[in-house]
Structures are given as C-alpha cells and as structure tokens.
Computed example of a mutant assay.
Amino acid sequence: MTNPANLKNKTGQGLLETVLILPVAIAFICLLLFVSYRALLYFYVDHTLHEAMICTDANSRSHCSRNFEKKVSKIVLKKEQVRIELYSNGFSGRQLKGKISVIGWKYPISITKVMNFPLKGDR
C-alpha cells in the first residue's frame, strides 16, 4: 500500500513539470507556425510568378507585375517586401525570365524562372 506521507511529498510535481515544459512547447509551436508560413509563402509566390509570366504573353509586363503584387500582398506580412522583375532574354524576345525576392527576414526567399514562348498550345 502507498504511504500517505509519500503522496504528500509529491504534490505540486505536475505543476512544476508543466511550468518547465511550457516554454519549450510554445517555442516548438511558434517554430512550426513560422516554417509552415514560409513554405506556404514560397509555393504561393512560385505559383503566382508562373501565372505572371504566362500573363505577359497577352498583356504588358507592368500590368502583370501589378496583378502579381496585388495577389501576393494578401499573404505577406507587413514587414516583408516583394520585388518582381520580368524581362526578356535574347534578341528575339522569345524567352522570358522572372525573378522574385521576398525581403524582410534574415533569409530572403528568391525564385528565378525561365519560360520560352510560344507556349506548347500556341503553335
């Protein structure tokens, strides 16, 4: 049988363990949220850059850049800045390069893509 004196000595043990593990749990949850946000931002910006590059086939680059910035501004935090560059490569203008930089953290996100025109379905 359990001695009542032993039970009395262990009162408060659960509270003490909770107080010790709580900062670690909160830090882990914050890290998980931050990594999830950065992954979501990377894939969304990558997809939106692809859309902006396709947009340049029918519209001006400035129009497509504005649309891109409008879409991405909905997801980025206030302290982050997004820059997009769309430019032709070569003399024929048949190749388009797109570059995006998301700045605001120690490690910025930078994506570069190259797309050749005409697209397969346009031939």
Rank of each mutant, 00 (worst) to 15 (best):
K79W: 11
F28V: 15
G98F: 00
F43A: 03
M53T: 00
R61K: 15
R61W: 06
R83Q: 15
A52V: 02
V102E: 08
S73A: 11
V76L: 08
L49S: 04
N116D: 14
E80R: 01
K97M: 03
R94T: 15
L86I: 03
F91M: 11
R83T: 15
Q81L: 09
R66S: 15
E69R: 09
Q95E: 15
H50V: 13
N116H: 11
C64P: 03
Q95Y: 12
K71Q: 11
I103M: 10
H50Q: 12
H47F: 10
C30E: 07
E85G: 05
I75Q: 03
R94Y: 13
G93F: 02
A39D: 12
K97R: 09
N89K: 11
I29D: 08
Y107G: 07
K106C: 09
N89L: 14
W105A: 14
W105P: 06
W105V: 06
G104Q: 01
L77C: 07
V102N: 10
K97D: 13
D57I: 09
H47Q: 14
C30K: 02
G93W: 00
T48K: 04
M53K: 03
R61H: 12
D57G: 12
E51P: 00
R83Y: 13
W105K: 06
V76A: 04
Y87T: 01
K71L: 10
T48N: 05
L49Y: 02
H50Y: 13
R38H: 04
R83W: 12
E85A: 04
R38Y: 10
K78G: 15
A52M: 08
R94D: 15
L31S: 14
F68S: 01
S92E: 15
S110T: 08
A52F: 05
F34D: 15
I29K: 02
F91G: 14
I103T: 14
I109T: 09
K97E: 10
M115D: 02
Y44C: 06
R61N: 15
E51V: 03
L49I: 05
K74I: 13
A39I: 14
C64K: 00
P108F: 11
K97G: 08
T112I: 10
T112D: 09
E51I: 04
K78L: 10
C30R: 01
A58D: 05
